[in-house]
Structures are given as structure tokens and as C-alpha cells.
Measured scan of single mutants.
Amino acid sequence: HNLTITQGKLFFHYNPKLCLSEIHKMEEVSGTKGRQERNDIALKTNGDQASCENELLKFSYIRTSFDKILLRWEPYWPPDFRDLLGFMLFYKEAPYQNVTEFDGQDACGSNSWTVVDIDPPLRSNDPKSQNHPGWLMRGLKPWTQYAIFVKTLVTFSDERRTYGAKSDIIYVQTDATNPSVPLDPISVSNSSSQIILKWKPPSDPNGNITHYLVFWERQAEDSELFELDYCLKGLKLPSRTWSPPFESEDSQKHNQSEYEDSAGECCSCPKTDSQILKELEESSFRKTFEDYLHNVVFVPRKTSSGTGAEDPRPSRKRRSLGDVGNVTVAVPTVAAFPNTSSTSVPTSPEEHRPFEKVVNKESLVISGLRHFTGYRIELQACNQDTPEERCSVAAYVSARTMPEAKADDIVGPVTHEIFENNVVHLMWQEPKEPNGLIVLYEVSYRRYGDEELHLCVSRKHFALERGCRLRGLSPGNYSVRIRATSLAGNGSWTEPTYFYVTDYLDVPSNIA
């Protein structure tokens, strides 16, 4: 807008934040220059609390790290170098490059900038070799853009010569660093050979998330399962459950009422301010606690030095998902009996873990797994792929695949051998790939016309006998059925096997 004052003059007093240069501009645009008398524009009460600059400061050096910015700028000295009290560095987070010096300023003089007072450097006698002032900004957020400017702080001049310097606002972004852990990993099994893994992005990506790394490792069953005799009275049979499938998407929606109208769909109840505040506090606490764990609990591995020492970490090797089922080394339970199943799973520490690289999504279907087997899954978020990966501390989750139908069934015939004193040795093959492992066998036998009897055969007993022995049988026709019990439950009964026990007292003698 054009402003013209045809008559009258300007009068400025007691404006401590208004620089004289701005008042002189007002004289020019209003056409009143030359009308004012000496005392109409006070030299001592206008701009006496402001830094009124008329020179431009330029930054000469900028260096960044993930949490620091090192700045240096060209030296500046007023005509009387004693008038320079120091520099004021202003900075704040700036997602967009549209910041002005006066953003967030209120009537009390406060604003949204963080201000650092910096002492002037030592003055050199040689004007050509003056030290460049600077400042190291610490405690910054990774991968965050900051708006920065600097200006001088000078003393009051009796001659009211307006001098000083100020830089333009520059924008500097800190470097990326390792992201925080992925949030809320959930693993479920939808079949006997697959596990579905879902997660949420890290709360602090500290860069642009480029991919996720998912490692999985087959877990050995508890050692007590191999040692305890679950045929003993009072000892509860062990059981394991597989990871249940995901709930429906509708039930997972946030901010939804727990109660549904019987007449149909209901609208979600909005969260109160107290609920939102509580969630923010919980989120802040979780982030602080995660940072504490990362800094205190997890110790970084030592990389190899120039002395030739090897990095103890196993090298990563990509495998196809079809090879995942046989990740671990199978060892027989008892070496003397080769027909026992290889369900003991000690994992070799030198073995390469299978892994998958996930790009542009937060889910993965891990296939080719062994049925009813526990897996430990390790999830890392990465925001750099080359020249070397920059990934987060791992988040861990466990899951067990679903049982395989008929995996616990005894394959092959049940054979028998009759000894003296009416002892019958029953023999059968253990299931080759049971659900988890076989903890015991149930032997059901009966003599024709009598009630059915049951015998429990422990895992250890089966390994020693290759089956079991029935003792003290009365003469007669017998039928026997056997079924295995694994961590997933009972298998199917075998087809009945028949044998006849004679009275050993009636056996004919070869003595003449």
C-alpha cells in the first residue's frame, strides 16, 4: 500500500525493539523526510534493546553428524571492536523451508527459537588472519532439518551509529543413524509349514526405512522333555500350542467401542483428552525405555581390526524358502538304536541362519518350516543398504507352526516275539517326523474274553527296548493296539495285532 503524509511529521519514542533503520525507511515511504526535528525521533529510546544489523554474515563451514552440527561463519568486528559482546545463534526444527525470524513471537518477546549466546573469538592483530567464530550444536535429532541463523550482539553506541551483522536463515539436516526397533511384532501360524509375521514401523526411523531383515531359527525343545518319565503317576503330560491366527481386521481397528449394538453396526467412541494424553505418555515412556535398553543392555560386537582377528559373527547367506525346513542338525536320541526319531534339535552355532529381506511392506510369510516346531524370529529395521547396512537392534518374537495331521501315527506293522515265561516283546517304529517329539506310547492289549488293559511306555523305555515287553501273560489269544502321544496330543491307534500265548508248562520236552 502507498502511504503519503502531505502535512505533519513523524514522532517515535520509547520503541526499544524498533531499529532506527526501520524508522528511516518509514520517513522515505511516507514522504516526511526532512520535516522531523532532532528530538522527534529519539536516538536513545528507539532500538536500544534490539540488534540492528546492516551487514550480512556468511557461514564459512558446515559439518553434520547424526546428532551434531558444527558451524563456522566469517569474522565480524565493528569499528570499535570492544562493542562486540558476542553472537546469538538461533535454531529450531523446520520440516519445511518457510521459516521466518519472527515465527511464534508474542507480545512478551518470546519466540519459538532456541538461542545460544556465543563469546567472540580472540581478536588477531592481523586483519587478514582473524579467527572464524563458530559453535557445535549438540543433542539434535537424527535425520531432522533445522533452520539456523546467527547475528551479532553489540553494545549501545553513544554516537548512535547503527552497526551489526546478521546471516540469512539456512537449512541444515542432520545425518541418518540406526533406527529404533520395529514396533509390535506379531507372529502367527496359518499352516503346519508357515508363519505369518506382521509389525509396525519404528517410532524413530532416523532416516528413510529402506528394508527390513527377518531372521528365523528353529528352537530346540526343553531338555526336561527328553529326561522326564511322563508315565509316572502324578506327572502331567506336557503340551505345546501353536500360535493362533490373526483376529479379523475389524476387531483390530483402534479407537473402536468394545460393545456392539445388537441391531447392527455401531460407531466408534472418540477417545477423551485424558485417554489420548495417557497414550502419549505411555508411548514416550516406551521410547525412553527402549533407548535405555539399547544403550545399557546391548553391547556392540567388536569388529575385526587390522591384526587379522576374525569377526566372530557368522556370515549372512541367503537361502531359498524351500530350504528352511531342514535348518537344524538332527541327532538321534540314543545312538545305539537307529530307529528312534531325530527330534532332539541342538543347533550348531556355526550354522548360517536363513533370512529374508523385506522391502516396502511390514509383513512376511515364512514358508518351508517344520510342522509343530518353535521358531525364534528376529526382526531388524534398516535405513541404508549400501555401502553397508545400517540397521536397528533386533526385536524378537516366537511362534510355533501348526501340527501336521497323521504325523504322530505309527507307520509300519507292530511285530512281536514270544519268549519263555510268557513274555512277549512288542516292537514298532517311532514316527519319523512327529509333531514336536514323542513323549510316550500307549499300549492297549486284551486277552479274548477279558477286559482291555493299558500300559504306558516312556520315551526312554522305548529307546532301550525298541518297544516294550509284556510279562506274566496268561495263555490265550491276544490283540494289541499302540498309539503315540506327542507334544500336540495323541496320534491314531494302530491296526490290531494278534498273537497267541501258550502255557509254557505244557511245552513238550526233548528229553527222552
Rank of each mutant, 00 (worst) to 15 (best):
V297K: 08
H371E: 05
L505V: 09
V424K: 01
R447C: 05
V334W: 12
V480M: 10
D450H: 10
E495C: 04
E465F: 13
L505K: 10
K302T: 15
G368F: 13
A335R: 13
E442M: 12
F285V: 12
R319T: 07
N360W: 15
L487G: 02
F226K: 02
P270G: 01
G449K: 07
K236G: 15
K460L: 09
V296C: 15
D323M: 15
R353Q: 08
F337I: 09
A309R: 12
F246D: 07
D291R: 07
L473A: 02
V443L: 07
R353A: 01
L369E: 04
A399Q: 12
L464R: 09
E265K: 12
E452Y: 14
S284A: 14
L369C: 08
N255M: 13
K278D: 11
T415G: 04
R240A: 00
L293A: 12
R301K: 03
L455W: 05
R459F: 13
K460A: 09
S251V: 12
P338V: 09
Y504S: 04
S458A: 09
D408W: 00
E404K: 11
S243E: 05
T272G: 09
E282I: 11
E452Q: 15
P403D: 10
I482R: 01
S262R: 15
N255T: 07
A407S: 07
P434I: 09
V397N: 14
F419W: 15
N360A: 14
Y500C: 13
Q384S: 14
K233D: 04
Y292G: 03
S479F: 06
S257Q: 15
A488Q: 15
I482W: 00
V324D: 04
E279P: 08
Y375R: 01
Q252I: 07
H352Q: 06
S398A: 08
R313M: 02
E290Q: 06
H454N: 01
W216H: 08
G207K: 02
R218S: 12
D222N: 13
R481A: 10
R459T: 04
S320K: 14
E260N: 14
E378L: 10
D408Y: 01
A335H: 08
N435R: 00
R459S: 14
S283K: 15
P244H: 15
L455K: 11
S248Q: 14
L369H: 01
N326G: 05
F419R: 12
L455E: 13
A330V: 14
E310W: 09
Y498G: 07
G368R: 10
T373G: 12
R218F: 02
L379D: 00
L464S: 12
S262F: 10
V297W: 09
I366L: 10
Y292N: 09
R471M: 07
E221N: 11
C456Y: 01
P338T: 11
P314Q: 02
P508I: 08
G467Y: 01
P205L: 07
V327S: 08
D261F: 15
N255V: 10
N477E: 03
G325D: 15
V501A: 04
D408K: 01
G322R: 11
P387K: 09
D250A: 10
S239P: 14
G368P: 08
G306D: 12
F337V: 07
L464M: 06
I410S: 03
C456W: 01
R370K: 14
T497R: 12
A407T: 08
G325L: 13
E290M: 06
P245I: 13
A335N: 11
L379Y: 05
N360D: 03
G207C: 01
K236D: 04
Y441Q: 01
V327P: 10
H454Y: 15
R471D: 03
T307A: 08
L225C: 11
G472A: 13
I209E: 08
R353E: 10
D408S: 03
T288Y: 14
S315K: 03
V507M: 12
E310I: 03
S363Q: 13
F215N: 10
P475N: 09
E217D: 12
E495N: 12
Y504R: 11
N360H: 14
M402Y: 06
T272E: 08
L487M: 13
K317Q: 06
R471H: 08
N422F: 10
Y212I: 15
N435I: 00
D311R: 04
E310D: 15
F289M: 10
A381I: 01
F289K: 03
N422S: 07
A399R: 07
R286W: 09
R400E: 12
L293C: 03
D273Q: 10
S320V: 08
L277D: 06
Y504G: 10
H461L: 10
V358M: 09
V297N: 07
E362D: 12
D385Q: 05
N477K: 10
K236W: 04
Y292W: 07
N208Y: 08
E465R: 09
E217C: 07
D506Y: 05
H352C: 02
V297S: 10
V214N: 00
F499W: 03
S283H: 15
Y375S: 00
V414Q: 03
G234A: 09
N360K: 15
S283Y: 10
F215H: 10
S262G: 02
K357S: 14
L213F: 14
I209Y: 02
S315N: 14
D408L: 04
R481Y: 11
P403A: 12
A330M: 10
F246R: 05
D291Y: 14
A399K: 12
A394V: 14
R469W: 04
A335Y: 06
L379Q: 01
R447M: 04
W493R: 02
L235A: 10
P403Q: 05
P413T: 10
I482Q: 01
A263I: 14
D261H: 08
A484S: 07
P270C: 02
S283G: 09
N490G: 15
N510A: 10
R301S: 14
D273E: 11
R447S: 14
Q219H: 13
I276S: 13
